[in-house]
Design a protein around this nucleic acid. Structure first.
Length: 476
DNA sequence: TCTGGGGTCCTAGGACCC
DNA sequence: TCTGGGGTCCTAGGACCC
């Protein structure tokens, strides 16, 4: 069998810690008017609900549901909808991870609000008690509620975390340690959980598994691994082994090298003109280039894509992409902008209403690893007609790198877009909607929360409305 | 009217090589 | 008339995650 796993002595348990309704919880830390009422945080462009308070879930609002479908429902129930404030969430995440990391030397930051811990050498510790203390310390330190799941493998820790949040036996405490649950009771829990509750089983595979009479976690745990590997793939086979306590997924303490960097956005309004499309693509390329430099990488390829609105199938559809190789791996915004424009020119067609554009940087390599290209002058794009001319003169690289560093410095200090390329446009009428933004409470002096000694002083600033008129609301 | 963005991994199939 | 087998690399598409 082609499945590999990491057997004992690696018999150290895992914990999964994650914040409840993370984005909503972050907002609630700073605005007490958001407590005890339905709150949702919206995706970019104020499009979908990507985080929901328990009260919002109780109203039946689904994860990813379009905002326009729930707008009235929210309003009728004194609900609040907020644009996503990633500056705030990223800063809260950093603080959260620091506290979680104090509970084990082996930590993997898995997502913005999730962290795995591995407890090697903790044989004589009461891990359930550790979980309780972790929870208390996060709540006291930054005001976020978290759930803690503990199990023999990452997949079991994930499952335990789900029980910690949902199951009446654990919910009050917010901690579930499967290692402390007798086998018989554990079997009962697993028989009650749907197969889709397992980490790595989504809707498609869930439906396919149900056709094979595998409907619960217990069913999946008992399933024939070799058969599932044949009918699905090795990933599902590992999941089954993990459910049986065989650790196949190691803790990844260092993030693996990045494979790609994407920058893309939907437009606030449909765009048909080439010049506006070009502005948007330039803006995305500049953002991707900044991310690239931040990560200490250079890109060898840039992909450009544009797309019409898939939710209007009656309108003519078109979603092309072009790949443009760079003559030399680069992190220089000017070069990436130029290549992106070549790609866009190649795929643009008149007569379509475009709703989205983006760029992908690929073929990433650390700055130190880039070697010169002997044949730079003769290399030609594969997907794009004609060579990409590079007018950069030899010997100017150091100066350009310094220019990029200065630009990044200014934009980090004063906000993204403080210094930008004219190619990105000035008015930018294609920009996304972001009408319900809360202040950058923790990262901007002007937007720090103000403690008022007059109780209720902020009540009349718009409490009860959809957009909370907090200081800085609507700031772009 | 209004429907997100950024990632990863696996597999199948075609091109190409010897 | 008769027309192999095994390997690698690349890409597109599909699945998953938060």
């Amino acid at each position: 069998m082609a499945v590999g796993f990491f057997p004992p002595p690696a018999q150290a348990p895992f914990a999964l810690v994650d914040a409840n309704n993370f984005y909503v919880s972050c907002e609630r830390v700073f605005d007490y008017r958001l407590r005890d009422r339905p709150v949702v945080v919206l995706s970019n462009n104020d499009g979908c609900c990507v985080a929901r308070s328990e009260e919002a879930k109780a109203l039946g609002i689904r994860m990813g549901q379009p905002f326009f479908e729930v707008r009235d429902l929210l309003e009728r129930n004194r609900g609040v909808a907020l644009s996503s404030n990633y500056t705030l969430y990223a800063d809260m995440s950093r603080r959260l991870m620091t506290i979680i990391g104090q509970f084990s030397p082996a930590q993997e930051i898995y997502s913005i609000d999730e962290s795995f811990l591995r407890f090697a050498g903790f044989e004589h510790w009461d891990l359930t008690q550790q979980g309780r203390e972790l929870r208390a310390r996060v709540l006291q330190g930054i005001g976020l509620p978290v759930g803690v799941g503990i199990g023999a493998t990452k997949t079991l820790a994930k499952l335990a975390n789900r029980l910690a949040k949902k199951h009446p036996d654990f919910r009050a405490e917010g901690v579930c340690n499967l290692l402390d649950v007798p086998a018989e009771r554990q079997a009962g829990y697993l028989a009650d959980l749907a197969v889709e509750d397992v980490w790595g089983i989504g809707g498609r595979w869930g439906a396919k598994l149900r056709k094979l009479d595998i409907a619960t976690v217990a069913d999946l745990q008992r399933a024939d691994v070799a058969r599932l590997q044949r009918q699905f793939n090795v990933v599902l086979a590992k999941t089954v082994l993990e459910l049986n306590g065989l650790s196949c997924l190691p803790l990844e303490e260092a993030p693996p090298p990045r494979q790609q960097i994407i920058a893309s956005r939907s437009f606030g309004l449909p765009v048909t003109r080439f010049d506006l499309l070009s502005e948007a693509v330039a803006s995305h390329a500049a953002r991707a280039a900044a991310k690239l430099r931040q990560a200490g990488l250079r890109a060898g390829l840039i992909q450009v894509f544009i797309a019409t609105n898939p939710f209007q199938p009656e309108a003519p559809q078109y979603h092309p992409g072009a790949t443009v190789p760079l003559s030399l791996p680069t992190a220089d915004t000017t070069r990436l902008l130029r290549a992106a424009r070549v790609g866009l020119r190649h795929i643009y067609r008149e007569g379509y209403a475009y709703k989205k554009a983006g760029v992908v940087l690929l073929d990433l390599a650390p700055v130190g690893a880039v070697t010169g290209d002997l044949f730079a002058a003769t290399r030609v794009g594969t997907n794009v007609t004609g060579p990409i001319t590079d007018r950069t003169r030899p010997g100017t690289d150091a100066r350009r790198e310094r220019l990029m560093a200065v630009m990044d410095g200014i934009n980090n200090r004063w906000g993204r877009g403080t210094v930008r390329y004219l190619a990105e446009g000035l008015a930018q009428p294609w920009q996304m909607r972001r009408a319900r933004m809360s202040p950058r409470y923790t990262t901007c002096w002007e937007e720090l929360p103000v403690a008022s000694c007059f109780r209720g002083a902020r009540e009349d600033q718009g409490g009860g409305q959809l957009a909370p008129g907090a200081p800085g609301a609507g700031h772009l």
